[in-house]
Write a protein that binds this DNA or RNA. Structure first.
Lengths: 240, 240
DNA sequence: GTATTTTTTAAAGAAATTGTTTAAAATAAG
DNA sequence: CTTATTTTAAACAATTTCTTTAAAAAATAC
């Protein structure tokens, strides 16, 4: 159904991070190449036309910034920079070095996938006048609307203020309606990759989320279903 | 139909668990090697290219975590970690040490088989660009539909609420229609390996399952057949 | 038809899971 | 630095599910 198969170059010196991202990106049908240092990365990036490069800023030898600058002498391959928290993320972005986007570590795998998709969508639009079908950033259910661009949730026209985790949880569930996720899976996908906390943390967030939705509409709150012994899901009640 | 024959290394210090899992995995046509301690496991894993390693966390000498870390210096063999309930399963997962998945003990053999299949499917996707999405998790019979993703059972369009065991029992039987299972076998496969309870327990669950199905459709309930002196099966009544 | 074996049914106590509350820890904002 | 918000964790309550038991019903064998 999708015409993905975009080729992505993944550059990070930590193998565990490469493996993590590779897994999540391959799940989306992207083809992944890897590099563990700047020199290799640059060489590969020049050698092959990737659709996108995920580039860690901090690298042994030539750092990400330098890789990007040198690459830019020859190619305009879209680049997303991965930066650790302190690493003056802002300077890295934009035209200083030619980065298209950046993500601060530690990230949640889900976030990376979304940003990759978004950037690929943007850059492919230039080449092909495609129908932008999959590109909708608004999820609409009965009683519930999530506008991801605006990071806004509306229940029956009333805006609901959610905390970041509440929002991400809702958004994640809403992206796969009717699919049950275990607490483990939710922690893995929605939380960042460094979090190994209590499973019941998910319950607490679900509780608050339901509470906030319920203030506006009972029906909206009831969309978040507990599947006993398994986990949670969002269910679109066809009869409403 | 399948091109299995994947090679799996099974690491656990308890022989009964190795034997149990070996039996179930060989039934799926996998080729199984075994190891009872960390040193042997690491040696074998480095010596041969396994398609997957099932690795107990708690091992005499070098524990599973260490085995995985050392292995990762050389290979990216997919690893599923087996952890006892208290053994901070979360930390072990993911990329702290490079585990691909984990299963909490005590598990049901069926669960292990499913997770092994899933991981092998994922990792083989790298080689062959198949479209994961085609794998529909819905079982459809006359009067009965099981959507495994949504963990939902419908009888004649009406949703039926099942408890976890009821659901698992039905799902298990439905995966092998027309095949009779003894109570012993059902307890072994659907329940976890530590459960040595009364055979009548199965009867009780069957009873309640039939009851719930019957509330919607007599015909659906009658699909669950008692084979006198042997056990139970699901039968797809061709005439309906 | 009666005896024997097996299955079904029903009910109650035990076990497990989830919901809720509260407080401490972490993070962001002023 | 202080304050406010958000996140996490722990404890307890409420709920749901599981298992066992025993009697009733059904199927089979003689």
């Amino acid at each position: 159904m999708e015409e993905k198969e975009a080729a992505i170059l993944l550059v990070d010196d930590e193998e565990r991070i490469r493996k993590l991202l590779k897994m999540y990106l391959e799940r989306e049908n992207y083809v992944i190449d890897e590099a563990g240092d700047g020199e290799t990365a640059l060489q590969k990036a020049l050698d092959k036309d990737y659709d996108l490069i995920l580039l860690d800023l901090m690298l042994p030898g030539m750092d990400g910034e330098e890789v990007c600058e040198k690459l830019r002498e020859y190619k305009a391959t879209p680049v997303i920079m991965l930066t650790a928290k302190g690493e003056e993320a802002n300077r890295v972005q934009g035209f200083e070095v030619g980065t298209d986007d950046y993500i601060v570590k530690p990230f949640s795998p889900r976030e990376v996938v979304l940003r990759v998709k978004a950037l690929l969508r943007r850059s492919s639009k230039t080449k092909f006048l495609e129908t932008e079908t999959t590109a909708t950033n608004v999820i609409v259910f009965p009683h519930l609307m999530i506008d991801h661009d605006a990071h806004r949730v509306k229940v029956d026209q009333h805006e609901v203020n959610l905390t970041p985790k509440e929002y991400e949880l809702l958004y994640y569930l809403a992206q796969n309606p009717d699919k049950v996720f275990s607490r483990e899976q939710l922690l893995k996908d929605v939380w960042n990759y460094e979090f190994f906390g209590d499973l019941r943390t998910v319950d607490t967030h679900v509780k608050r989320l339901r509470e906030k939705l319920n203030k506006v509409s009972e029906k909206a709150a009831e969309m978040i279903i507990t599947v006993w012994g398994v986990g949670y899901k969002i269910e679109v009640d066809s009869a409403t």
